[in-house]
């Protein structure tokens, strides 16, 4: 169990690092959202699953699962709102230039 936890935590950390590396490397905003998505999805999932394997307390497991559930529900919504706001802003600027 401890070894599985090690692997999950290290993989999760690695995906978080790759995601932020992408956030620095990608050239424009709309591509950077994809890189941030890695941290929000697989990075968070793997680290929280890794923590779940490290405890026997049922209440803590439930809390970690609830964190995971809330993140999976709110993360995409926030990203969608952000992307939509950026798109509307770009359209505004285009119409102002014309």
């Amino acid at each position: 169990m401890i070894i599985i936890g090690w692997i999950l935590l290290l993989l999760g950390s690695a995906f978080c690092l790759i995601g932020t590396l992408g956030l620095m490397r990608f050239p424009d905003f709309f591509s950077r959202v994809h890189a941030a998505g890695i941290v929000d999805s697989l990075g968070a999932i793997l680290i929280l699953l890794g923590l779940i394997t490290q405890t026997q307390d049922v209440l803590i497991i439930i809390k970690l699962l609830l964190i995971l559930l809330f993140m999976m529900l709110t993360g995409p919504t926030a990203v969608h709102a952000l992307a939509r706001a950026a798109l509307l802003d770009a359209k505004d600027k285009n119409s102002n230039n014309k």
Binding site: A35, L42, M72, P76, T77, H80, A83
Partner: peptide, 16 residues
């Protein structure tokens, strides 16, 4: 559907 599209990196829903 829109949430699932956004949750997989590489694609995200930008307008609906």
């Amino acid at each position: 559907y829109a949430n699932c599209i956004t949750l997989t990196p590489g694609t995200y829903s930008i307008d609906i």
